[in-house]
Simulated scan of single mutants.
Amino acid sequence: MSQKVAYLISAVAKMLDIHPQTLRQYEKEGLVEPSRSDGKMRLYSAEDIDRVREVLRLTRQMGVNLAGAKLILELQSKISYYESLLKEKPSKNALVKSAKYEIVFLGGKNKP
C-alpha cells in the first residue's frame, strides 16, 4: 500500500516562490481545493501543486485574471472527461452530445 505525499501550505509556498496568502486566495476563488488534516491544516497533493503551477502560468505568463484561469481549468477538466468517455466503449450510460455555439463579435457586425 503506497502512501500519498501531502505538503503543508508553507512548503508549497516556498516550493513555488509565492506567499502563503496567494494559496489561500486561490482556495477562496475555487482554483484549488487542498485536503485538510484532522487539525484543519491545508494539505496539498502533487496534483494540487500542479494545478497551482498552471494557475501561475496562466496569470503570470498569459495575462489571464483569476476568473479566466478558473474558467480555463474547468473547461480543460471537461475536455479531459469527454475525451475519456470517447476512449471507452460506448455504453447506454455514456452519452456525449455535441453543442453548437454562436460567436458574437462586439462592436461590429456579427459574422457567420
Score class of each variant (00 low, 15 high):
11 A>M: 08
32 V>S: 10
12 V>H: 01
80 S>I: 07
39 G>A: 15
109 K>Q: 07
67 A>H: 13
57 R>F: 15
51 R>P: 08
15 M>P: 00
50 D>E: 15
56 L>D: 04
100 K>S: 08
54 E>M: 14
62 M>L: 14
49 I>L: 05
103 I>W: 02
35 S>L: 04
100 K>T: 11
55 V>D: 06
97 K>Y: 12
53 R>Y: 00
10 S>P: 00
16 L>F: 02
42 R>T: 05
63 G>A: 12
45 S>I: 03
26 Y>L: 11
79 I>P: 01
105 F>V: 11
105 F>Y: 06
7 Y>E: 01
83 E>H: 10
92 K>P: 09
33 E>Y: 10
112 P>N: 06
8 L>C: 00
39 G>W: 03
54 E>V: 03
97 K>F: 14
30 G>T: 08
23 L>Q: 07
49 I>T: 04
31 L>W: 07
39 G>C: 04
89 K>Q: 14
5 V>W: 00
106 L>D: 09
51 R>F: 09
88 E>Y: 02
110 N>A: 06
111 K>E: 11
29 E>N: 03
48 D>L: 06
21 Q>Y: 04
30 G>K: 07
10 S>F: 01
80 S>Y: 09
45 S>E: 06
53 R>T: 01
109 K>R: 07
46 A>V: 14
41 M>W: 06
44 Y>Q: 01
83 E>D: 14
94 A>F: 00
69 A>L: 07
108 G>D: 13
5 V>C: 03
101 Y>A: 11
38 D>H: 09
16 L>Q: 04
70 K>C: 06
56 L>R: 12
24 R>A: 04
39 G>N: 15
89 K>N: 12
68 G>A: 12
38 D>K: 11
110 N>Y: 02
82 Y>Q: 12
78 K>Y: 09
78 K>S: 10
42 R>G: 06
17 D>E: 12
60 R>N: 15
53 R>A: 01
56 L>M: 15
67 A>C: 04
109 K>A: 10
101 Y>C: 02
110 N>T: 09
90 P>A: 08
68 G>K: 12
93 N>Q: 14
105 F>S: 03
100 K>H: 05
85 L>Q: 13
94 A>D: 13
16 L>E: 01
77 S>F: 01
7 Y>H: 12
14 K>H: 12
38 D>W: 05
71 L>V: 11
2 S>T: 10
32 V>R: 10
74 E>G: 11
37 S>F: 02
112 P>E: 09
70 K>Y: 07
2 S>P: 14
43 L>V: 00
77 S>Y: 02
67 A>G: 08
4 K>M: 05
26 Y>F: 15
68 G>Q: 13
72 I>Q: 11
92 K>S: 14
81 Y>R: 14
32 V>K: 10
74 E>R: 15
78 K>L: 14
62 M>I: 11
49 I>V: 15
31 L>D: 07
86 L>A: 14
105 F>M: 05
104 V>W: 01
102 E>W: 00
67 A>W: 03
66 L>P: 09
22 T>K: 12
37 S>H: 06
78 K>A: 12
85 L>V: 07
29 E>I: 03
58 L>I: 11
102 E>G: 00
3 Q>L: 13
98 S>P: 00
19 H>E: 13
14 K>R: 14
96 V>P: 03
23 L>Y: 06
2 S>H: 08
